[in-house]
Write a protein that binds this DNA or RNA. Structure first.
Length: 472
RNA sequence: GGCUGAGUGGCAGAGUGGCUAUGCACCGGAUUGCAAAUCCGUUUACCUCGGUUCGACUCCGGGCUCAGCCUCCA
């Protein structure tokens, strides 16, 4: 039974979907005005993991993750670069998708764009005005009246009187109350705009998510996720808009992933201390980045360091080394496979893994299960034994549940020669020569060959009378 | 100032009212021509001060430190 930490109540709760067997999941995606950074990667991976876990538990999941493709930052950036906002956002949507593929992230069921839901947003705003929760200012802006929603602050644990609106940013003179936030923004000439009852304009950020989630998941749905930095005010405002509109509940479980840090400080655009996924992918594989992100619990802060990425690389290599040369029936190894059905599994490890994942996606614990499984597998030298095949299958299956270990071990360990590395043929020839030297007890020559390859990033390993190799 | 959350061994990082997390690193051993990989074993811990308890790293309270939010942010 899955337990999820619900930010609304600040504790783990048993997950029960509204509709048996089905889950509606909404995640706040990104604003596409630049390349994704590691923090965005964490969001992608964390909710991908939840998605996979729900699927493997047998749910049908409607996973919606939006794209904000109209926003001040997009408009400004596009103007700077001299391109249209549409072209700019499309470019970064494509880049985001490429990053996701590299990280092994499954596509969500729906990926709505804000600009495709403008009519829904306008309808919601109209109804909010009718019910007295919103008001139009004389300049064409529409604001949400925060004090009209009695439960405002229930997600983030704040009280309206404690908020220091205006302390850090000048208050918009058109607001009746400093806390009010914009639902509809009048546009200046040349900016992207849509006609509305309040004049040409564009939606405010918060209303997008209310509209897109309700369009695709209904007025009330199961899980809403996003980064911890969105808790306030974004998610609080979503709740205020949506629940004021419907009079019922909006999302039932709120999940928030922790921030990625660099030098013990939040990685973010505004602090300009971010590393793009593109940067990191030049140095580490998507699978290594994914392993790094899975190494800590999703709600904890995660510090980005070279050491941590290298540790992920080491862990992954350990798994693949254990799987090397071991037959694993690959059919039926996808996320929706019922373990034990098509491939013999070690149910003990699967149960421990499930228990860890059901405990609010405890991935460090799940990874510990994989390590113990690897250890057990390494102890069985007979690759063809039924026992070894079962353990190897279980390892590949559980790795797959995390979106890992889907590569061929031999290919992965052999890696890519790159521009200056020796080719596989060259290595094979040198290994052959070394074997001859060893047979002749010419260990000086044998070691010379090994050292030479090591300098070129190739490690030789003699085991069981055979020599295998891998790139560092 | 307010609201969240966190402080675990050299590092990363789970967890539990009394019983080995796990991985990396280190040290010793096995294996190896020597290595690598692998296996076995060992060492290092729960911020601080009080309280509850037969017993607390684990519960409660104070303190200290750190991070996030109170502007856009994943």
């Amino acid at each position: 039974m899955l337990q999820i930490y619900n930010t609304l109540n600040r504790r783990k709760e048993l997950f029960k979907p509204l509709k048996q067997g089905h889950v509606g999941l909404y995640v706040c995606g990104i604003t596409v005005y630049d390349e994704c950074h590691v923090g965005h990667g964490r969001v992608m991976i964390v909710y991908d993991l939840l998605y996979r876990h729900l699927l493997s538990a047998g749910y049908s999941v409607n996973y919606v993750r939006n794209i904000t493709d109209v926003d001040d930052k997009i408009i400004n950036r596009a103007a700077e670069l001299g391109v249209s906002p549409t072209a700019l956002s499309q470019r970064y949507i494509d880049e985001m998708h490429a990053d996701e593929r590299a990280l092994g992230v499954l596509p969500p069921t729906h990926e709505p764009r804000a600009t495709e839901s403008i009519q829904s947003m306008i309808r919601i705003i109209e109804r909010l005005i009718e019910s007295g929760h919103a008001y139009a200012a004389d300049n064409g802006d529409v604001f949400y009246a925060v004090k009209s929603f009695a439960e405002y602050g229930k997600l983030s644990g704040r009280r309206i009187e404690e908020l220091r609106a205006g302390e850090r940013v000048a208050i918009d003179e058109h607001k009746r109350d400093p806390l009010d936030f914009v639902l509809w923004k009048s546009s200046k000439p040349g900016e992207p705009s849509w006609p509305s009852p309040w004049g040409d304009g564009r939606p405010g950020w918060h209303i997008e998510c209310s509209a897109m989630s309700m369009d695709l998941l209904g007025e009330e749905f199961d899980i809403h996720g996003g980064g911890a930095d969105l808790q306030f005010p974004h998610h609080e405002n979503e709740i205020a808009q949506s629940e004021a509109l419907t009079g019922g509940r909006f999302a039932r479980y709120w999940m928030h992933n922790g921030m990625v840090r660099i030098d013990e400080e939040k990685m973010s655009k505004s602090l300009n201390n971010f590393l793009t996924l593109r940067d990191v992918l030049a140095e580490y594989s998507g699978e290594e980045i994914r392993t790094f992100i899975l190494s800590s619990h999703y709600r904890s802060p995660l510090n980005y360091t070279t050491e941590a990425l290298l540790a992920a690389r080491t862990a992954l290599r350990r798994f693949y080394t254990a799987l090397r040369g071991r037959p694993v029936p690959r059919e039926g190894m996808t996320h929706d496979t019922n373990p034990g059905k098509t491939v013999a599994m070690d149910t003990g490890y699967v149960e421990r893994f499930d228990a860890a994942m059901n405990d609010d996606l405890n991935t460090p614990e799940a990874m510990a299960v994989l390590h113990e499984l690897t250890n057990a597998l390494n102890k069985d030298a007979d690759a063809g034994s039924e026992h070894a095949v079962r353990l190897a299958s279980t390892l590949v299956y559980l790795g797959g549940r995390l979106g890992l270990l889907d590569k061929d071990p031999e290919e992965l360990l052999h890696g890519d020669a790159g521009s200056d590395g020796p080719t596989a043929d060259r290595i094979a020839a040198m290994i052959e020569e070394r074997q001859a030297a060893r047979a002749a007890k010419d260990f000086a020559r044998s070691d010379q060959i090994r050292d030479e390859l090591a300098l070129q990033g190739v490690i030789l390993e003699d085991a069981g009378g055979k020599t295998t190799w891998r790139r560092v």
